[in-house]
Design a protein around this nucleic acid. Structure first.
Ligand code: FES
Ligand code: FES
Lengths: 160, 160
DNA sequence: AAAATAAAAGAGTTTTTTGTCTTTTATTAA
DNA sequence: TTAATAAAAGACAAAAAACTCTTTTATTTT
């Protein structure tokens, strides 16, 4: 067993909301959004650099996101990933749904096979509210709007 | 790559808040709490049955929780796991912290190395609120109070 | 048309998480 | 005090997630 590697107080291990893949996906899309407003394109190396992720890993993820129409891509010289009018209307919830599925929005917090009103777990009502808040946050955040946000102030997509 | 196994709409994969280990841990402790109010003890087989988890796996988890004083245990015939006045004062947050660490409460939602006011990710403010809600929920839920809740109505800790 | 570029595809590896099995130790009841 | 019981400990195995590398295909520039 490896689930406890540190003392009680400096415990470090934990999955927070998203899988690593999903975190990379969100950060990558945000990065592309920020870098390509003027019709430019960014390559996978530049993205990996920009969000501090493994190059080939983010490449894979972006292929899938591109297939699903969440980002646009073009091969060849001057090619790369970019956003257009259509992809900018997508929300963060779309990314999460594409990569991690819908458990974040529908799953039981205690891991029961499904979340159920008729057979609620002891924390059902409470979890439901938090899930709803989370979903609303992700669903109201359109990438196009994030683009505006990036205009106004500085946010970080990488940090060492 | 295995992160997309299904079509966009029936996407199923997702880690929601806790690791499986942590989900089992919470359910196990809730189960013990419910089953041992009258000074009884429950064995690991009974617990595994009650929360529908692998026997040996939950045994491991409970050993750790016992070591950390979150549940009580006694070996030998009539032995098993149980709660006492002291362990009942613990909260769900204590369990999560013991098993999964503090990332759920402090980590950056986009996976940056740490969550930082000075170098906020684009969703910092929003995540912070959700994290806070979640922490408050877990930190205000004392196991002793859950015990009372179990008196009043029926909740589920297992479902197939 | 040829060379260069960059994404797409896919096979393979490592690490982490989850789960299994066996042996040992402590406690109790007979 | 012996046999039975149940947790503790630890080695091991399988599955999933995270990450790497190589080859192929599409596009563009020269
Ligand atoms: S049944 Fe557990 S969150 Fe709904
Ligand atoms: S920096 Fe991302 S949540 Fe605080």
């Amino acid at each position: 067993m490896s689930f406890i590697k540190f003392c009680y107080l400096c415990a470090i291990q934990q999955k927070w909301m998203f899988s690593k893949t999903c975190e990379y996906a969100i950060r990558a899309v945000m990065f592309i959004t920020r870098e390509t407003k003027d019709g430019k394109r960014v390559g996978v190396r530049e993205i990996a650099e920009g969000i501090d992720s493994p190059v080939h890993f983010i490449a894979k993820i972006l292929q899938e996101l591109s297939k699903r129409g969440i980002v646009q891509s073009l091969k060849g010289p001057t090619g790369g990933f970019y956003m257009d009018g259509n992809t900018l209307t997508h929300t963060l919830a779309d990314i999460v749904l594409a990569v991690d599925g819908d458990k974040l929005f529908n799953g039981c917090g205690l891991g029961l096979s499904e979340c159920s009103e008729k057979q609620p777990c002891p924390l059902h009502a409470e979890f439901k509210k938090i899930r709803k808040d989370l979903h609303e946050l992700l669903a109201r955040t359109k990438l196009g709007e994030l683009q505006d946000k990036f205009d106004m102030s500085t946010f970080y997509l990488s940090r060492r």
